[in-house]
């Protein structure tokens, strides 16, 4: 564990806490893409298949459980909670995320560390996580002004993988046989997708104006 990865994990956890705060405090999920939340739930379920077989550390196990439980709870809440689901922007959240699922799985069959069930699902979760934010970014562009908590949620979600890139660079230079090409390249793509969001987020922060993504 290094400071970059720990900071990344804390940002990831913060993004989830901000999203939970928004949904439970405002009893609303307006501006949140259910499709992105469904993709994230799949990412964690596919990545943490080894939850009960490979014990890395207490921290690792607890964080995996937190990510799985929180992501599935958010999906459940947006679909089933009578109050919350009324505020879901169904007509705006129309990104065809099944293509992202199919493309990620097809790529995982072709490019993986080892052609085993667990490694294919691990690579699938890495590729899927890289594109999972797309429905959310499209929804933000369509829904015009973005409320603060939603903006902060997306910001921390994007920042976490940027810190993971620093973590991979650090590990590359400090560990002998360290190579995570699949995660690293996918992480670069993932962070690049946030580039324009980060730009408009910075502008809104600098000018102290409402965050607005151009359509």
């Amino acid at each position: 564990m290094n400071i970059f990865r720990f900071a990344g994990d804390m940002m990831h956890l913060t993004s989830i806490l901000v999203l939970l705060l928004k949904i439970y405090a405002t009893k609303s999920c307006s501006g949140i893409s259910l499709k992105t939340q469904e993709l994230y739930a799949l990412v964690f379920l596919a990545r943490y298949l080894d939850l009960f077989t490979d014990f890395i550390s207490v921290y690792n196990t607890i964080m995996k459980l937190v990510f799985i439980v929180s992501s599935t709870a958010i999906v459940w809440c947006m679909k089933r909670d009578r109050v919350v689901r009324r505020s879901y922007d169904k007509q705006l959240d129309t990104f065809r995320h099944y293509f992202l699922l199919a493309a990620s799985f097809a790529l995982a069959l072709l490019v993986n560390e080892k052609f085993t069930f667990q490694e294919i699902f691990w690579a699938f979760s890495i590729y899927l996580e890289a594109v999972a934010i797309l429905p959310q970014l499209v929804l933000l562009q369509r829904s015009g002004n973005v409320d603060n908590l939603t903006g902060q949620y997306v910001f921390f979600l994007g920042a976490y993988r940027a810190f993971y890139i620093l973590n991979w660079i650090y590990r590359y230079f400090t560990e002998t046989h360290f190579s995570r090409w699949i995660a690293c390249i996918s992480g670069l793509v993932q962070t690049a997708l946030y580039a324009d969001f980060f730009y408009y987020y910075y502008i809104s922060w600098k000018n102290n104006t409402k965050l607005k993504l151009p359509a």
């Binding site: 490979d54 964080m63 560390e113």
Partner: peptide, 10 residues
Amino acid sequence: DLDDDYHDEL
């Protein structure tokens, strides 16, 4: 072969 703690990251 992948050493067993290969996926030690979240």
